[in-house]
């Protein structure tokens, strides 16, 4: 049986050179994301903005969107965002955070239920008060920052500082582009989005660390090799693994996007994007940075010692 091989044996693509293109492209995309973030902002869900989300399901037939909008606007909670979803009579109502603290939000739920109880079921009702949404913003931001710092510390212990910094730059790049994905697609940014970003942080580092593990190993084996050659060799020799893992992760998440259902497809779509970006950045962003960070500086002597020690023990 002839087996599939995504990456042909003996590939020697000069990845590091490609930075002439990848860096401007990534820099542009990152800057564009920042500009869009400032310009447009994220489409925050009620987790972070507070407010009420009510999903309704018509008991029979199709929902009467115009009627729902009219009734909802007359409830006196400001203009409701009304959207149809699915193809089985689903309709969602979204009210902004009401002034007047916690009790005011409870009233929104109560009145809306009362107004539509006759014709609709309520598969999902979510209401988040101002206090909780504020806290969720805090813990969400804290989570992302903390994970980056924690991983930086871990990498610093396990690798040389340069490698740790390069890995983190790659990860920040991935976080940035993921934010760009949120801004451009107008996908709702909520609690699961934070989970998606943290998962992407994990995955991004996973990809990078495998390449850097090899870089470190090769660095000790080939002491005379130029940094550029060394990095190209590291990326090439781990390339088939990178491709394999990216493909299997991509396939499983694709299943989630297609079949996972409405409640999870947003999360899955972000993850799918994340896998692509992380794979790209591990190869084209994190590794080439090491050229600028001076890979051999300061570690050469230490590396020498270790490799000679290893050479002595190996027959």
């Amino acid at each position: 049986m002839r087996l599939l091989r995504i990456i042909p044996d003996g590939t020697t693509f000069r990845f590091v050179r490609f930075r002439r293109y990848s860096y401007p492209i990534s820099a542009f995309m990152s800057l564009a994301t920042i500009a869009l973030l400032l310009w447009h902002g994220l489409n925050f869900g009620i987790d972070f903005k507070g407010g009420t989300l009510i999903e309704m399901q018509a008991k029979a037939g199709a929902p009467n969107t115009a009627h729902v909008r009219e009734v909802a606007d007359r409830l006196g909670f400001g203009e409701a965002e009304v959207q149809e979803f699915g193809n089985a009579g689903g309709i969602s109502l979204r009210f902004a955070l009401q002034p007047g603290g916690e009790a005011a939000q409870t009233l929104v739920v109560q009145k809306t239920r009362a107004a539509f109880q006759g014709e609709y079921d309520f598969p999902r009702v979510e209401s988040v008060g101002p206090r909780v949404s504020g806290e969720l913003v805090q813990t969400g931001t804290l989570g992302v920052v903390l994970s980056v710092v924690a991983v930086l510390i871990y990498l610093w212990f396990r690798f040389e500082m340069q490698l740790a910094v390069a890995a983190i730059i790659g990860t920040l790049h991935d976080i940035m582009l993921t934010m760009g994905f949120f801004v451009i697609t107008r996908a709702e940014f909520n609690l699961t989005s934070i989970a998606a970003i943290l998962t992407i942080v994990g995955y991004s580092l996973n990809e990078t660390v495998v390449v850097f593990d090899r870089t470190r190993e090769l660095m000790r084996r080939y002491k005379k090799m130029s940094t550029e050659e060394l990095l190209d060799l590291s990326v090439n020799s781990t390339l088939s693994r990178t491709a394999m893992t990216a493909t299997s992760a991509f396939l499983s998440i694709l299943a989630l996007v297609i079949f996972g259902g409405r409640a999870i497809e947003g999360f899955a779509a972000v993850m799918l994007f994340g896998v692509v970006v992380c794979t790209y950045s591990a190869v084209f962003i994190s590794s080439p940075i090491l050229i600028y960070l001076g890979l051999r500086d300061g570690v050469a002597i230490e590396a020498d010692d270790e490799s000679s020690a290893k050479a002595a023990t190996r027959p």
């Binding site: 999903e55 399901q57 916690e102 009790a103 979510e126 209401s127 396939l251 299943a255 989630l256 409640a263």
Partner: peptide, 27 residues
């Protein structure tokens, strides 16, 4: 005071489980 409320109907939950199962099998 009620600071957060989230209610999910049993039908939606069942649909989510079904979708999750299919996604798991396909993956």
């Amino acid at each position: 005071s009620i600071v957060e409320e989230r209610t999910v109907g049993p039908g939606l939950g069942k649909d989510s489980i079904e979708a999750g199962k299919i996604a798991t099998y396909v993956a």
